[in-house]
Design a protein around this nucleic acid. Structure first.
Lengths: 163, 163
DNA sequence: CCGAAATGCTTTAAATGTCAAAGGTCGGCG
DNA sequence: CGCCGACCTTTGACATTTAAAGCATTTCGG
């Protein structure tokens, strides 16, 4: 039934980092699956598409594909395909600025803005619903603590990542 | 640079659930990417393969594919291909028990056990390293809180899921 | 200016992921 | 005995993902 319950078992008492990681991962998967299912059922959209549109919704002048890639933590090649599909759906347009013809900028169409606005409202409601049994204090507490974890992880990456 | 920093912006003050979700998601992605990269670089393995082997490592008698599917949160059809590749690598064997020929049980080979044991030790070390700046108290606290969040999310799924 | 290096995007191959439908197999009921 | 329904896995069609290779364009040193 539950990944972490089974993965632990015998030597569960120690290894708190591993335990926390498994719990984080399974919780995130659980919520992601639910959001993915609802996005698909109610809007015919995928989670990566939602993420990408969210970025563009906040930057009305559009974003370069490389920038989109970094912000969504999706690889370059993937952004290409995602934007292609969204463009085919009429939610996004691609433009090449005059200054640098290597660059492609994606931006929302009016249709895309309207479409995303509806999804975003529903998305927020789903999250409030799924977190309904968690007190506001606990949410604030987790927000802070997960922030610290994220900083720690970022400071211990193997790839050359400075700040 | 950072998904959540950008996604928030203007109306960031409210919507704590959304904010927490974005932070959870980006943190999990960050750690996943790092683990995936190291697994690939040092062991030539993928994250789903690691997950699947981890389940089998804890159940030396093997697991039915359907059970593997539930534990790894991966669909049935996907487990088939995953196990096929691992079998081709000699890490896993498939057997059909005498009692019920509908069933396929996957279990680790000695080679698979040895291989996974090495990966698991490294994996645990990577996690300790990435969480090095987080105090043990905070880890315990997050463990508890994320557990509560998971329960809340599970109780508010749209799919018919009782307990 | 020229050519090498860097930059930005796209393409490719292999793996993973979903979903739905098809294939065997088992169990029970008439 | 024989069939129907339930159970388990595989298959098939596609969408998504990553890493790496491939193109085109720009930048910079000489």
């Amino acid at each position: 039934m539950d990944l972490e319950i089974i993965v632990q078992g015998a030597q569960a008492e120690s290894k708190p980092e591993l335990k926390l990681w498994l719990r984080l991962l399974s919780t995130t998967k659980l919520i992601s699956h639910e959001i993915r299912r609802r996005l698909r059922a109610e809007y015919g959209a995928t989670l990566p598409q939602f993420d990408l549109l969210a970025q563009l919704y906040r930057e009305r002048d559009g974003l370069r594909l490389g920038e989109l890639s970094r912000r969504t933590m999706v690889t370059n090649g993937n952004v290409t395909g995602l934007v292609e599909r969204l463009e085919a759906d009429g939610l996004v347009v691609r433009e090449t600025p005059d200054g640098d013809r290597r660059v492609t900028v994606a931006k929302l169409t009016p249709k895309g803005e309207e479409f995303f606005a509806g999804m975003a409202a529903a998305h927020e409601g789903w999250l409030r619903d799924m977190m309904a049994d968690v007190s506001p204090e606990l949410i604030q507490s987790m927000l802070r603590e997960v922030g610290l974890l994220k900083i720690s992880a970022r400071n211990h990456l193997s790839g050359a990542e400075e700040e």
